[in-house]
Amino acid sequence: LGLPKMEVFQEYYGLPPPPGAIGPFLRLNPGDIVELTKAEAEQNWWEGRNTSTNEIGWFPCNRVKPY
């Protein structure tokens, strides 16, 4: 089972920042694999864990694709 995984195809370094105070941003590099921890199809921002860095944070969902 486990959490859904997504592959990063466009880098994200915190700009634009996540809206409001939902949480810290998650740095993404192309090729990184992100395990989704909070993701809803109608939301533009998802939370996940970058398996390369083990960091957890928020990122724009348009930077990832199904793994």
Rank of each mutant, 00 (worst) to 15 (best):
L1G: 13
V8E: 01
N44L: 12
F59D: 02
L15H: 07
K38G: 14
W58D: 03
K65E: 08
Y12K: 02
P17C: 07
Q10I: 10
G48A: 06
E47G: 04
R27I: 10
P30D: 08
P24V: 08
G20L: 06
R27F: 05
T51W: 06
A39P: 11
L26R: 00
E40N: 05
G31F: 05
L15K: 14
I22D: 08
E40C: 08
V64N: 02
R49N: 08
P60G: 02
G14C: 00
V64G: 03
L3H: 05
L28V: 09
N29H: 14
V8K: 00
A21S: 07
D32Q: 06
N50W: 01
L15R: 11
F25S: 14
T37N: 09
M6E: 03
A21V: 07
A21M: 03
F9G: 07
T51V: 12
G20P: 10
E42S: 11
E47Y: 07
G23V: 08
G20V: 10
P4F: 14
P18D: 03
P66A: 10
Q43D: 14
F59Q: 01
V8D: 00
R63H: 12
L3T: 11
Y13S: 13
S52K: 12
N44Q: 13
Q10W: 07
N50L: 04
D32L: 01
E55R: 12
E55N: 12
N44C: 07
L15W: 10
R49C: 10
L3S: 07
E7Y: 12
Y67V: 14
P17K: 10
N62H: 14
E47I: 04
A21D: 13
L36E: 02
R49I: 11
K5V: 14
F9R: 08
A39E: 14
G23D: 07
L26K: 00
P60V: 01
G31T: 04
L1S: 15
P30K: 15
L15S: 12
P24M: 06
L1K: 15
E35G: 03
C61Q: 14
P16Y: 00
L28G: 02
M6S: 05
K38A: 09
G57T: 00
G14W: 03
G14S: 00
P66M: 07
V64P: 01
G48E: 03
G48S: 01
Q43Y: 10
G31D: 05
C61T: 11
V34N: 02
A41M: 12
E7K: 13
V34I: 13
T53R: 08
L28S: 03
Y67P: 11
V64K: 01
T37M: 12
G14Q: 02
L26M: 06
V64H: 02
F9P: 04
L15F: 14
N29Q: 05
P17I: 08
W46V: 11
P4D: 15
G31A: 05
A39T: 08
C61K: 15
G57Y: 03
K65T: 08
W46Q: 06
K38D: 07
V34T: 00
L28I: 15
A21G: 15
V64F: 01
Q43V: 13
E47A: 08
S52F: 10
D32V: 03
F9T: 12
K38C: 11
P30G: 10
G2K: 11
N50K: 07
L1Y: 05
W45A: 01
E47F: 10
L3N: 09
L3Q: 05
T51G: 07
Y13P: 03
L26Y: 01
G23A: 06
E55Y: 05
P16A: 02
W58F: 03
F59M: 02
T51E: 13
E55S: 09
K5M: 15
W46F: 05
R63Q: 04
G2E: 11
Q10V: 09
M6G: 07
L3C: 07
A41I: 06
N44A: 13
V64L: 11
R63L: 10
C61M: 07
P16S: 00
G31I: 02
T37W: 08
V8Y: 00
A39Q: 15
N62Q: 10
K65G: 11
V8S: 05
E35I: 10
K65N: 06
W45T: 04
G23M: 08
G2A: 05
A41R: 13
P17V: 11
T37G: 05
V34D: 01
P66F: 15
G14K: 00
S52E: 12
Y67S: 12
F9H: 08
E55L: 09
E35L: 10
F25K: 04
G57E: 00
W46M: 10
L28A: 03
F9C: 15
L3F: 13
F59T: 03
P16N: 01
V64S: 02
L15P: 00
C61S: 14
L26D: 01
P60T: 00
G23C: 08
Y13M: 15
P19H: 04
N62I: 07
P16F: 03
L3E: 10
E47V: 07
W46H: 06
G2Q: 10
T51A: 09
G23Y: 07
L1F: 12
G31S: 05
A41L: 13
P4L: 15
G57S: 00
I33V: 13
E35C: 08
Y13T: 12
E7I: 14
R63I: 05
P24H: 13
W58Q: 00
P19Q: 04
P24F: 09
E55Q: 13
N44H: 14
G2M: 15
A39C: 14
E40K: 11
Y12R: 01
G14T: 01
F59A: 00
N54I: 01
P4K: 15
T51C: 12
P60A: 00
E40F: 05
A41W: 14
Q43W: 08
E55P: 03
L15G: 05
K38V: 12
E47C: 14
E40Q: 10
L15Q: 15
Y67H: 13
I56G: 06
E40H: 11
P4N: 15
E42A: 07
P18V: 06
P4Y: 15
G48W: 02
W46L: 12
P18M: 01
P16M: 02
Y67M: 10
I33A: 04
W45H: 10
V34S: 01
E11Q: 08
T53L: 05
L1A: 04
C61Y: 10
P66R: 10
P19T: 04
F59I: 02
E40L: 08
G2P: 05
G57M: 04
A21H: 13
G23S: 08
Y12W: 00
G57N: 01
P19C: 04
P16V: 01
L1C: 15
G57A: 04
F9Q: 12
R49D: 02
W46N: 04
Y13V: 12
W58G: 01
F9I: 15
L15V: 14
P18E: 03
L1E: 15
K65Y: 06
N62F: 04
W58T: 02
R27P: 09
G48Q: 02
L28N: 01
L1V: 13
P4W: 13
P30F: 09
I56W: 09
E35M: 08
Q10P: 02
V8I: 02
